[in-house]
């Protein structure tokens, strides 16, 4: 217990391992700073670039589950991203469904699903992002 009350004096004759870990830490932090600085310099004011791809349509019980990936290829995060799905028969939308993502981070991917009661097979299925806010 006395250890917690006393003042420490660092040894003035350090083991070589302290220097190795110290120097490699400096290198690591330096590399990290370099990477982020590079990103900061090359970043532009691009708005979020959102695109969706349908990965799977599956029937579960009486609903049809349309799974999709949403990718944000811009270096800016989008928040409150709404994705709308429509099943279109001939010209009119038979059914629409909507889902909201809290975040789609910069240059990242999120997964989601829309649930329909109409079978999308043989009809036109459209899934697209319909809006976002800045975080």
């Amino acid at each position: 217990m006395s250890a917690s009350k006393a003042r420490h004096t660092e040894s003035s004759d350090p083991h070589w391992i302290e220097w190795i870990s110290g120097i490699s830490s400096c290198a690591l932090v330096g590399a990290m700073i370099g990477w982020i600085a590079w990103q900061a310099i090359t970043a532009n004011d691009e708005p979020p670039q959102l695109s969706t791809t349908i990965t799977q349509v599956r029937k579960s019980g009486s609903t049809f589950r349309v799974e999709f990936d949403i990718v944000n290829s811009a270096p800016v995060t989008a928040a409150g991203v709404t994705v709308m799905g429509e099943i279109i028969d001939a010209t009119a939308a038979v059914e629409t469904a909507e889902v909201t993502f809290d975040y789609v981070p910069a240059q990242s991917k999120s997964r989601g699903a829309l649930l329909f009661s109409t079978d999308p097979a043989g009809r036109d299925l459209r899934v697209r992002p319909s809006g976002y806010t800045e975080p």
């Binding site: 917690s4 660092e10 003035s12 350090p14 110290g22």
Partner: peptide, 17 residues
Amino acid sequence: GGHELSPDTPQWHAFVR
């Protein structure tokens, strides 16, 4: 409970180590 350096050790030693 703070740490001290012996007077002959330069400040950057503790920083790196």
